[in-house]
């Protein structure tokens, strides 16, 4: 699925985890995170959603940032996970997988539209 059709509530629930996952490979900047998530099928993540989330992660000390000068451009703000961020990512990923396994089991127990 490559269009931006995921329900907003679902995205809000999982976006933080996906952003942290995008950061787990190493320092990167906002637009690169948005592009990676879009390429992986999550849809277009607007800057207005992404940067406040990154700032909240930074305030929670799960992420740190630093500005790096660009070649003739305005420079880029690079974000990277802290050790606490990696730990939170691992813990939350584990919980999320449990949750999705549970919901998958629930949703597939009775086929949609089926009767008991």
């Amino acid at each position: 699925m490559t269009d931006n059709a995921w329900p907003g509530d679902w995205l809000r629930g999982v976006l933080e985890l996906c952003v942290m996952q995008a950061l787990s490979a190493g320092p990167t900047y906002g637009y690169a995170i948005a592009t990676e998530l879009a390429d992986r099928g999550l849809g277009v993540i607007k800057g207005g959603s992404l940067y406040p989330l990154l700032q909240r992660l930074e305030q929670a000390e799960l992420v740190v940032s630093d500005w790096r000068a660009g070649d003739g451009g305005p420079g880029r703000k690079y974000f990277s996970l802290t050790p606490a961020g990696y730990a939170a990512l691992a813990a939350q990923t584990h919980r999320w997988l449990e949750f999705t396994a549970l919901t998958t089991a629930l949703l597939t127990a009775h086929p949609a539209g089926g009767t008991r």
């Binding site: 906002g30 207005g48 940067y51 451009g73 703000k77």
Partner: peptide, 24 residues
């Protein structure tokens, strides 16, 4: 600076990428 940087990369206007200034 973050908005300027993002818009320089994406080619979007600030309003397209971030909504109104007040919303952001």
């Amino acid at each position: 600076a973050a908005v300027q940087s993002h818009c320089a990369d994406s080619g979007d206007t600030p309003e397209e990428a971030f909504g109104t200034a007040q919303q952001y």
